[in-house]
Nucleic acid binder design. Sequence first.
DNA 1: AGTAGGTGCAAATACGCATTTGCGCAAATG
DNA 2: CATTTGCGCAAATGCGTATTTGCACCTACT
Lengths: 351, 351
Amino acid sequence: MNRKHGTESTRPRQADIARLAGVSQGTVSLIINGRASTGRILDETRDRVLSVAHELGYVPDPAARRLAGGRNRLIGIFTYESVFPLSHHDFYHPFLVGIEEQAERHGYDLVLFTSATGTSGERGIFVDGQNRIGLADGAIILGREMRTEEIVSLRNEGYPFTLVGRRDIPGEVPYVTADYRRGTVDAFAELARLGHTHVAYVSSSDDTHPAHEREAGYQEAAAALTVVELDGSQSADGLAGSLAELIATGTSAVVTHYAETAIEVEAALALRGIRVPDDVSILALNDPPDDDPSIGGLRIPRREMGAMAFDLLIDQLESDDPEHAPIRRVLPTGFAAGRTVAPLPQHRRNA
Amino acid sequence: MNRKHGTESTRPRQADIARLAGVSQGTVSLIINGRASTGRILDETRDRVLSVAHELGYVPDPAARRLAGGRNRLIGIFTYESVFPLSHHDFYHPFLVGIEEQAERHGYDLVLFTSATGTSGERGIFVDGQNRIGLADGAIILGREMRTEEIVSLRNEGYPFTLVGRRDIPGEVPYVTADYRRGTVDAFAELARLGHTHVAYVSSSDDTHPAHEREAGYQEAAAALTVVELDGSQSADGLAGSLAELIATGTSAVVTHYAETAIEVEAALALRGIRVPDDVSILALNDPPDDDPSIGGLRIPRREMGAMAFDLLIDQLESDDPEHAPIRRVLPTGFAAGRTVAPLPQHRRNA
DNA sequence: AGTAGGTGCAAATACGCATTTGCGCAAATG
DNA sequence: CATTTGCGCAAATGCGTATTTGCACCTACT
C-alpha cells in the first residue's frame, strides 16, 4: 500500500543491503546476527556486507524480528498509572533507576507502553481486546494498582513478565517485593534497643499486601513491648489528642504505616507543644515522601527491587526450560532513624 | 529456533478463527478491525466470526500488526546520560512527563535506548558503528550534553528526530527550546517594574546555547538599568563581598545565571547580615533545583517543551512531504518571584 | 436473453526478518 | 577419470496480520 517513490527515505532493509553487496537477503541476516559461522560465509563477504549495512545505517526492525520467531531485546515497562506522574514522581523513579541500570548492563532497550490507553481512557494490558505489550520479549509490571484478571490472562498466554510488589494473584506469578513484615519487626526491635518500652501503633485500613504484612509484623513484634493501638482512620489532630495523653503516661514512640501520617501527626503534636524526637520518637513503616526525606523508619529498596525484577525476567527469557518455576524475591528493607527517631531520653527512663 | 513450548496451547491466530468460522483469514482481519463495511461483509458473517474470535480468546499479535503496518509506532528517547539519573532526576522528569502525555494521546509507545552503551562504556547514538536508535520511527534527543557529529550523521541518514534545547548544529535540525533571551529581558523588566534601578549581574562562562541567549538578553536589557557585571567564576563568598559593597551604594537586586549560584550567594550574604529579599532581591535565569524551589527567576516550561518536541516529531513522521522543512519552536519562559524577589523597599527608594 | 452492475467473500500479496534447504562448483578421494 | 565431499551462498519458506485484487454468483435493466 505504501510504496512511495525512490526518493522516499525509508529505513534500509536487509534486502537493500543484499542488493548493494551483491548477496541474498538471507545471507545478510546470517551475517547481521553473527551466524556467519553457521552459514559458512567468507570473511570477505561478511566484511563487505557489514560495511554496506553500516553505510546505510541499517537497524533491524524489532517487529519483524519478533514475528520471525526471534527475540528483539526489548523489555517492556507497564504501569496502570502514568509512568511519569506529575505528583509523586518519586514513587516509580527508584524502580526505573534500577531497571535502567540492568537493562544497560544486559544490552536491552526499554519500552514504555504509553499506547496502552483505550478509547475509554483506561490504561490496561489488554485494550479493546488487544494485547498491547506483546511487542517486547517480556515486561515488568509496576504500580500500586493492578488488574488481577489481566495478569492472569497474561500468564495464561505464556507471556513472560515480572511483578514488582507482590500481589495475590490466583496461581503463581514471578514477583519482587520487599519484606515488610520483617522490616516492621526490625523497626520495633530498633525502638526497643533505643530504650522505648511503651509504643503507640497507628495502623491503616488498607487492603493491600504491604499493609497486611506490616500488620503481621506488628502482631509478631507487639509481644515484646507494651503497645497501644490507635485508629489510623481518624484525623491527625484526633490522633495527636490521644497521643498526648499516652505520652503523658509513658508512651515514648509512635509507629505509623505511612510517612504522610507521621508527618501530619508530628505537626499536630507540635501544636500541642510536644516535640519530636525529644518528647516522642516517630517512625513510619514506609518510605518518606520527596519533600520530607528525614522521617525515620523503613526504607524500601526500590532501586534494588527494580534491578532484581529485571534480572528475574531475563532469567525467564533465557531459561530454556519451559516449566521454569516462577521465581520470587523478597528483599530486605532498610532502616533510617532520620530526624524523628532517638533513644529514649534519660529523664523519661522511669516514667 | 524457538518452537513454542509444546504444552502451551499456542495463541489462536486469525487463521484459526477463519477455519472455524468457515471464512478466509483476510475476512477475519477485516472484521476484527471493523473494516467490515469496507469489505462488504454480511452482518451474519461478522457476528459468527466475532463470536468464534471471542470463544478462542483471540488477541492480535502486535508484532505482526506493526510489520504489516509499515511503521512500528515507537518513538525513541535518547539521552547521553542516564534517562533516570540518580542525582538531578528533576532535570529530565518534566520533559518526560510532557512526552509521555503526548505519546499516550497519539497512541505511540516510547523506547528508552538503554542498550546504547558501547564496549567503551560510552553512550552514543552510534555505537560500534551501529545506529542504535533506528529501531524507533523517530526519536527525541534530550540532554545538556550532545555530540554534534552524531546529530549531523543522523540528519544525513534522513532519520526523523527532534532536539530538545537548541544546539548549534551545522545545517538545520528540528528543535524545541525556551526563549532564554526574551525571558532574560523580561526578568530585568520585572525588576525595573518593581522599582529596582541598580542591578548586579553575575554571568556564567558556559559556552552553551542558553548561556549565550541569556547573555544576549542581558545586553539588550542592560541599557534600561544601571548594571554592574560581576565575574561568576569566583567563589560565592567572593561574590558576596563585592555585592555587599554594591548593596551599600544602592544596588538592590542581583541576577545570576544559575539558581545554584543564587542560593550560594544568598547564604553567603546572610553571613554578612544581608537579608533576602529585604535588603536585596535575588533572581536566577534558570529553574530552581528540587530542594529549593522558591528561588525567584525564570521558569523553563520543560513539560511543554517535551510535549512540543513529540508533536514536532509526529509532524515529520506523518507528513508525506519528504522535503518537510525542519520545524522549530521557541517557547516562552515563565517567571516566579519566589521568596527572593520583592519590590524595592520604601526606605531605599532614594538611595 | 444478454449484458451491466453489484455483492460477499476467497485468494494473493506484502511487511522485514530468521531459518532451512538445495544447488553449483571445486577440491578431494578412490 | 568417475565420484564423493565440502563449501559458499541463493532461494524458498514461514511468522501473523492488513490490504488489495479477483472471482463467482446474483440482480436489474435493456
